[in-house]
Measured scan of single mutants.
Amino acid sequence: MSGNGNAAATAEENSPKMRVIRVGTRKSQLARIQTDSVVATLKASYPGLQFEIIAMSTTGDKILDTALSKIGEKSLFTKELEHALEKNEVDLVVHSLKDLPTVLPPGFTIGAICKRENPHDAVVFHPKFVGKTLETLPEKSVVGTSSLRRAAQLQRKFPHLEFRSIRGNLNTRLRKLDEQQEFSAIILATAGLQRMGWHNRVGQILHPEECMYAVGQGALGVEVRAKDQDILDLVGVLHDPETLLRCIAERAFLRHLEGGCSVPVAVHTAMKDGQLYLTGGVWSLDGSDSIQETMQATIHVPAQHEDGPEDDPQLVGITARNIPRGPQLAAQNLGISLANLLLSKGAKNILDVARQLNDAH
């Protein structure tokens, strides 16, 4: 009898209710805020589980004197976190989706994509230029951005401005803007500013005609071990179906173009009346040469937790077992079709030249 009692006690200790789920994140304040929001949602869904947040620095956090596009290494903000995932030191990792490459290392998958916040870019102005827009900034004003995508589009749109690289986390960039006289304004992701509670610093939100956004911008991705079915089931509740389908289309477009950090590629997606609209573009580094096109596809946005595919093969690095396969494939095909259209119009040449120029500098 006593033996059975011990077995029952052991089973209770090993039951999922007692389990601590370890969540990996970057150390920056924004990353911690984003991770806290994901953990809060998981806690609400699984009140019996405990969650421990483990923060670590990544290569991208450490190399702050070089433009991201020049470092010449993929997975700048993800490699150390993936290493911890691989060694079973954490069970899942919360990322900004735009930091996750469209091809993940073997053994990993994006197990959830959370509801997207505003994906557009924002302009934050130096205190002396508050009330201005990019259009009304004085001639030769210097605007800071760490992104080739932003610089290429904005140089084309605002030729009277000069664009220079600015690195560091959000706090560091804002301090550089406010305390030094080098920059009249800087460009940042609206979602990051909003998550930090800095709505009052948003001086201008850039519309798609001015600057399309990065693939996955404004959404959070939760990376897990691809074979860890328990954790895949656990994080599945975080999937937002519309965000998922938009981001599958965007990531398929980028992957098929073979774009990345070192080339200016941008997108804009919208879901309306059962249609998914995808606009994508590529630019030369100075913005003088560009190709942009829009395509659409009829896609039914499923309700969360309709029964999805059981075999769960990944699409552009994403596993969404609780979302039907048909809409996911339709979104992926839309991204591939748009990429093929741009490639047929000469996108590869623009991107190759951009890559060579970026590598040469």
Results as ranks from 00 to 15, higher is better:
Val38Met: 07
Ala40Asp: 11
Thr41Ile: 12
Leu42Cys: 08
Lys43Asn: 09
Lys43Thr: 13
Ala44Lys: 13
Ser45Gln: 14
Pro47His: 10
Gly48Lys: 14
Ile53Pro: 15
Ile54Glu: 14
Ala55Ile: 08
Asp65Arg: 12
Ala67Asn: 05
Ala67Lys: 15
Ala67Ile: 15
Lys74Ile: 07
Leu76Ser: 11
Leu76Phe: 07
Thr78Lys: 12
Thr78Leu: 10
Lys79His: 12
Glu82Thr: 08
Ala84Ile: 06
Ala84Glu: 07
Glu86Tyr: 15
Lys87Pro: 01
Asn88Val: 07
Asn88Trp: 14
Val94Cys: 14
His95Asn: 14
Asp99Lys: 02
Pro101Gln: 08
Thr102Arg: 00
Val103Ser: 11
Pro106Arg: 12
Pro106Val: 14
Pro106Trp: 11
Phe108Val: 07
Thr109Trp: 06
Ile113Phe: 01
Lys115Gly: 13
Arg116Gly: 06
Asp121Gln: 01
Asp121His: 02
Asp121Cys: 10
Lys128Met: 15
Phe129Cys: 07
Phe129His: 10
Lys132Val: 09
Glu135Gln: 13
Glu135Ser: 08
Leu137Gly: 03
Pro138Val: 08
Glu139Leu: 14
Glu139Tyr: 12
Lys140Ile: 07
Ser141Ala: 13
Val142Ala: 12
Gly144Pro: 02
Gly144Thr: 09
Thr145Gly: 06
Ser146Lys: 04
Arg150Leu: 00
Arg150His: 05
Ala152Trp: 10
Gln155Phe: 11
Arg164Glu: 14
Ser165Asp: 02
Arg167Ser: 08
Thr172Ser: 10
Arg173Lys: 04
Arg175Gln: 13
Lys176Ala: 08
Leu177Asn: 07
Leu177Gln: 05
Glu179Gln: 12
Leu188Gln: 06
Ala189Ser: 08
Gln194Ala: 13
Arg195Trp: 05
Gly197Glu: 05
Asn200Met: 11
Arg201Asn: 07
Gln204His: 13
Ile205Asp: 14
His207Val: 11
Glu209Ser: 06
Gly218Cys: 00
Gly218Thr: 01
Leu220Asn: 03
Glu223Cys: 15
Glu223Tyr: 03
Arg225Ser: 08
Ala226Ser: 08
Gln229His: 11
Asp233Gln: 09
Asp233Tyr: 08
Leu234Lys: 12
Leu234Asn: 14
Val235His: 02
Gly236Thr: 10
Gly236Tyr: 00
His239Thr: 14
His239Asp: 14
Pro241His: 09
Glu242Tyr: 00
Glu250Arg: 01
Arg251Gly: 04
Phe253Leu: 10
Phe253His: 05
His256Ile: 05
Glu258Tyr: 13
Gly259Ala: 11
Cys261Asn: 02
Ser262Cys: 04
Val263Gly: 00
Val263Ser: 09
Thr269Phe: 01
Ala270Arg: 10
Ala270Leu: 02
Met271Arg: 05
Gly274Ser: 03
Tyr277Leu: 12
Gly280Cys: 01
Gly280Ala: 14
Asp286Ile: 15
Gly287Cys: 06
Asp289Trp: 14
Gln292Trp: 07
Glu293Gln: 12
Thr294Ala: 06
Met295Lys: 12
Thr298Lys: 08
His300Met: 02
Val301His: 03
Gly308Thr: 08
Gln314Met: 00
Gln314Tyr: 02
Leu315Thr: 03
Gly317Arg: 03
Ile323Gly: 04
Pro327Thr: 03
Ala331Val: 05
Gln332Leu: 11
Leu341Ala: 01
Leu341Asp: 15
Leu341Phe: 07
Lys348Cys: 01
Leu357Ile: 12
